[in-house]
Design a binder for these strands. Structure first.
Ligand SMILES: [Zn+2]
Ligand SMILES: [Zn+2]
Ligand SMILES: [Zn+2]
Ligand SMILES: [Zn+2]
Lengths: 173, 173
DNA sequence: ATTGTAATGTTATAATATAACACTTTATAA
DNA sequence: TTATAAAGTGTTATATTATAACATTACAAT
């Protein structure tokens, strides 16, 4: 599916640092979110869906209070708990990730198979966050945990630096 | 030095999950901090040293306001900026690390060679944090970054789970 | 002693997140 | 269909983490 010839637009959907059809990308994200919720009996209510849309509007991590501002500009501005509850739902459903080093949230590009960790490349200049899946790192982490007799529940790898596009635009390190 | 027969107590100083002579461990940490500061012309003032000592009193990550409380119990309680400035100094000097997923701080067990990343095993039960150095993970991260043409500035890998001792005490996941 | 710099004290406030309780909507099932 | 329970949302207040701004003090180097 991911590499299906019927969906060539999504070829780079998982590499936001490269050019991609973002309207397609966000549409795809929202559709698969709806699908996932329907399949699992999760209720993707209006607030939750709107928060997810706002998060997907760019590939930059979005803070809870930025989301609040956005919601405020399209009607009545809700109180913080509204946004945090929506975020909690989306996190639980695996539809968004929290970037701890930024106190901010990013859409998940694989809202299904959370078998192992996902890792993040964070551009310090343009603030775009790319979610990466890397089996080699998965395995090294597992090996490390095994050596230490440590049972792994969560992995959070946040790699900060400069993305290719920003390097090309002269923002190298 | 690290494996010197004259200091067998430090054999496990870098694995707080295993039993170790913690009085030796903390003493060693403070001594090498003093040494590092002297060598580099950093000023390890009273506040800074006391904050570092408090952080090293356990291998659990300590929050800034917990540090404030402790300082308050041994004299006049300072205001937050005092602690945050001490923490900034210690972070810059490489003497402590910030654990993003906990908003808390932990002593660095190798305050010198920050050539590559350090990674953290965080026990969700006892809250002890172990700093790990793993060349294989370093290399996989470098390989990943190279594939994505990403210039790495900082790496933060925080692995949460259950440590061996807590497993043995029946707190397994 | 003088002077510039680094460190600390102090007050106020920003930014992020949650507790507690009332109310409304939705689902379920007599 | 209406009663009922559960889930979701609104609202107010507050907790937690962190920083801005400016005054004062300690220190180092002339
Ligand atoms: Zn996109
Ligand atoms: Zn960039
Ligand atoms: Zn110790
Ligand atoms: Zn433990």
């Amino acid at each position: 599916m991911r590499n299906s010839p019927f969906m060539p637009e999504f070829k780079h959907a998982y590499s936001p640092f490269k050019n991609h059809q973002h309207s397609q990308c966000i549409h795809h994200a929202l559709c698969s979110a709806e699908k996932l919720c329907k399949e699992n009996g999760f209720r993707l209510t209006n607030v939750r869906k709107r928060v997810l849309e706002l998060i997907w509007e760019s590939h930059q991590a979005l803070g809870a209070y930025a989301i609040l501002e956005q919601l405020g500009q399209e009607g009545v501005k809700p109180a913080p708990p509204t946004v945090y509850r929506a975020l909690d739902f989306l996190l639980d459903a695996g539809l968004v990730h929290r970037i701890n080093s930024l106190n901010a949230y990013i859409g998940c590009n694989h809202p299904k198979d959370h078998h192992h960790g996902s890792y993040f490349l964070i551009c310090q200049h343009c603030r775009i966050v790319a979610e990466i899946h890397d089996q080699a790192i998965d395995e090294e982490i597992s090996a490390l945990a095994k050596r230490e007799a440590f049972i792994v529940c969560e992995r959070a790898l946040e790699i900060s630096g400069i993305c290719q596009r920003c390097q090309e635009n002269g923002h190298a390190g």
